[in-house]
Nucleic acid binder design. Structure first.
Length: 470
DNA sequence: CTAATCTTT
DNA sequence: CGGGAAAGATTAG
């Protein structure tokens, strides 16, 4: 296995002890707060269920899409009221879908769809992120299980609980009060705020900013994209800038939601989203969406060149290795095409040369996505090892790695060491622009942002390293 | 668009 | 009755 030994020896083997330490660490959870929100969400769900039954004019299981379909389309016949809109059907079953997009379209016609949408949101939060977390708890803490070899891209995954998928955004619940003259009370639920530090310790999170976009700039060498990152100070935040350009509003007017949308658009576009999907995200027509894709790829010309080059290389590997002349036919196995990440990780894509358009183009998008996502995963894993080594070889530092959320490393640090550790952490991570041992020399700098907090849900950015201690 | 986990039917 | 697929929610880029 050419090239893979280095990856195994220098990265995966070294990571094992880091993951072991992470699994041994206990993340404290505010059990009382969890119980309170579980009860709160429980009564909210009962309310919504009753509202749904009232709106439907019958009792039914609101969590069942089958029963909902019966109510929505066979009893209320809502699809007949909006034949102007095309309602997507579940594939191959000729049933009407009860998916989010359908319910969104139906919500002006009847009160029920809106209730269902809210029910689903609250139900998900309760079952997975409140009750689910509670069932993972031992005493007053959780420890996730980390899987090093469970993904095709080289990313880590976590389970029991999946700490990488705890909601980032708080949700607002309006609690109806049955006390006379009282306004309905609005409470915000934030699952991340249930994760708290030990007494005398602080969470410190370090994020690689726009890591995949920076890697795309490096991998494609696109001059416009490189410019965005190579001129420090010019661009405060790339996605905010792109949002301001797209929405035609000043960068100071860009809201957090605008930035998030811009981020989705950019990644969707470079990973090959079609105009239909993109128009859904943007809330515009498919024609406008395809115009956006074209103007984006026109401005960042080398991005398309990079995706084409990647697909070609994958096809080339396919042809080379499966050629009969290189191996005796009697021993010929199927050697699918593969692509390689920045540190030599591979992904095989046997369908890269498929006849079927759908199968082939999916493999092409996966090939492109792997090179960028896999390279980002490499970088984050190296960062974990470096930091772990840094702490282990220090006689004073006691910082502990608590979790990895792909581009973010979450540490628990003794209060008195936050400032010192933050500085080393940031410089160690940003120095990964150049990794001599693995031949990595990125054309763009890496940017790490830091934040601190006593709970994971109340992290605030550290803007000045010198003011960290107090 | 890509990559995951978790709950429910 | 139970395993597994599908749907639909969350996250990350």
């Amino acid at each position: 296995m050419q090239g893979l030994w280095q990856l195994f020896y220098n990265m995966e083997l070294g990571l094992m002890t880091v993951l072991a330490a992470m699994e041994n660490h206990r993340i404290h959870v505010d059990k009382d707060a969890l119980k309170r929100t579980s009860d709160l969400l429980g009564t909210k769900l009962k309310q919504l269920e009753q509202e749904a039954h009232k709106a439907a004019g019958q009792q039914f299981l609101v969590t069942s899409s089958n029963q909902l379909r019966l109510v929505l389309f066979e009893k209320l016949r809502l699809h007949e009221l909006c034949e102007n809109k095309k309602l997507p059907k579940t594939v191959l079953k000729q049933h009407h879908s009860t998916s989010e997009v359908v319910l969104m379209q139906l919500q002006d016609l009847h009160p029920l769809p809106k209730i269902i949408l809210e029910y689903r949101q609250v139900h998900k939060i309760k079952s997975t992120y409140v009750d689910g977390i509670m069932s993972c708890m031992k005493k007053s803490y959780i420890s996730s299980t980390w899987n090093q070899t469970g993904t095709v891209s080289g990313r880590l995954s976590a389970k029991h609980p999946n700490i990488q998928a705890i909601p980032k955004q708080p949700i607002q619940i309006t609690r109806k009060q049955y006390i006379q003259g009282k306004e309905p009370e609005v409470v915000t639920i934030h699952p991340r705020s249930m994760f708290i530090t030990e007494e005398g310790w602080t969470f410190l999170a370090a994020d690689f900013s726009q890591v995949e976009l920076r890697l795309l700039a490096h991998l494609s060498s696109d001059p416009e994209l490189l410019k965005l990152f190579q001129e420090p100070g010019t661009t405060a935040d790339v996605f905010s800038m792109l949002a301001s350009q797209w929405k035609e509003i000043p960068e100071t007017e860009v809201k957090h939601a605008d930035r998030e949308q811009a981020k989705r658009i950019v990644y969707s576009t470079v990973y090959g989203a079609g105009k239909e999907r993109l128009s859904e995200i943007l809330g515009i027509t498919a024609d406008q969406a395809s115009q956006f894709v074209e103007s984006f790829l026109q401005k960042y010309k080398q991005v398309r060149a990079f995706t084409q080059k990647t697909i070609q290389q994958c096809q080339k590997q396919d042809r080379c290795l499966s050629r009969a002349s290189e191996r005796p036919p009697e021993h010929s196995e199927h050697h699918p095409g593969y692509v390689v990440s920045i540190m030599g990780r591979r992904r095989q894509l046997p369908h890269i040369g498929a006849q079927d358009y759908t199968i082939r183009t999916q493999a092409e998008r996966q090939a492109v996505n792997f090179v960028v996502q896999g390279s980002a995963a490499d970088l984050c894993k190296i960062a974990m090892i470096r930091i772990f080594t840094l702490v282990a070889s220090s006689s004073t530092l006691t910082a502990r790695l608590v979790a990895q959320i792909h581009d973010e490393l979450l540490f628990e640090v003794e209060d008195s060491q936050v400032e010192e550790f933050a500085a080393s952490l940031k410089s160690t991570m940003e120095s990964l622009q150049h990794v001599e041992a693995l031949g990595v020399h990125l054309k763009v700098p890496l940017k790490v942002t830091l934040s601190t907090g006593k709970s994971w849900g109340s992290m605030t950015e550290v803007l000045d390293l010198r003011s960290c201690s107090h």
